[in-house]
Design a protein around this nucleic acid. Structure first.
Lengths: 203, 203
DNA sequence: ATATAGTTTAACCAAATGGTTGACAAATGT
DNA sequence: ACATTTGTCAACCATTTGGTTAAACTATAT
């Protein structure tokens, strides 16, 4: 499957729109600004994507599809619970270090319009965690990991990996860290997060 | 100190503004909507608070001051590291269950304008975690808790407590939970989060 | 060459938005 | 009783914003 990023006008616009929407959010983003970023006339935005709403939807779906398959793949792989935790943490943190605005964008817009999740669920590749749930339940029953519901564990994994990016401005303030020092902390978390989680549940 | 919520026009406006700003964010909030919510004329907003920006700042500071002192108090109390973790988790989750829009509002607006943190730091009551840091370092040296930097532990505590609220729409989708089921999960987390953290660091 | 379809632009438009004004009412002080 | 300050409102204003239009330009097919 060839999926080289092509340089069509649609793609050009989409990338510009991503840049602006992800930095400012739907409401604060301006169509003119997106046009400037793309180096084209504002009317072109409406020619290729009919409205701000539709352009936004395209951006959002594209953004979501950068994250969801990763999660899905790891959670449904033929690996142990511990390996899944290690893979997801390392994988996700590496990814977000390259796309720092992504998680906040997705979370923010889902909070603005919670019904949007329903659309996403319908789509193929929407993360399914039933296999992970089954594995956890099994291991708890076997007495290999401490009693915990798969749901709580899943929430913990997501929290420990995602929040440090979304809450970065606040955490930098509390810790009195500059950008570089904070980034180093994040690098370390690629392994420290999974160690922390595994320590918490391993007997 | 008497701090009963007074029913002055300023307060009335501030509460209405909180409602709207926290639900929609600065950019999407409309002055007319705030006026309607407060049951007054739009001109009154400008009479009491000069501009949207200033009204927003008042709301933001008020919101932040509902959370910061709690954190500060707990972190600087004369209690053990474990007790601090237990107190913060139980305390914070209870609080946010009553103010569900607060954490997302603060995080979102700080991401929109990271420089805003500098203002907050200058204010009295801005959380100071040096005592907590010292306690953690000490306990690690004593071999009572596993090696971890105080910063990473602090980030973990914040993540596990805050993210489940900010990421609620997404997590509800992944877990296929409705509002009520999700709220029950949160209730359980009042104690489960601290157990999880303590298990992760206790030797 | 010429018609046809697709692409790009400058100029334009209606609606929405933050903010102002001037008149009027309600307290407040003397 | 009267003047002055403070509070409230409907109407208004300038600007911004998403979106449209009609004309021009480009490529492609015949």
């Amino acid at each position: 499957m060839i999926s080289e990023e092509q340089s069509t006008p649609e793609n050009n616009i989409l990338n510009a729109a991503k840049e602006i929407f992800q930095k400012k959010g739907m409401a604060a983003a301006r169509m003119q600004e997106i046009a400037d970023e793309a180096g084209i006339n504002k009317a072109m935005l409406h020619y290729y994507y009919r409205s701000k709403e539709l352009l936004f939807e395209a951006v959002f779906k594209s953004a979501f599809s950068m994250i969801a398959p990763q999660l899905n793949e790891i959670m449904n792989a033929d690996t142990s619970v511990f390996e899944k935790i290690r893979n997801f943490s390392s994988n996700y943190i590496s990814f977000v270090l390259k796309h720092p605005y992504l998680p906040n964008f997705i979370i923010q817009e889902l909070n603005r319009n919670p019904d949007f999740v329903k659309n996403l669920i319908a789509e193929k590749n929407f993360p399914n965690i039933s296999k992970f749930k089954q594995q956890v339940t099994e291991k708890v029953a076997e007495g290999v990991i401490r009693p915990i519901t798969a749901e709580q564990l899943f929430i913990n994994i997501m929290s420990l990996n995602i929040f440090p990016f979304i809450g970065a401005p606040l955490l930098k303030g509390f810790l009195n860290f500059d950008d570089e020092a904070y980034k180093k902390l994040m690098e370390k978390r690629k392994t420290e997060v999974s160690d922390f989680i595994i320590n918490a549940i391993k007997i």
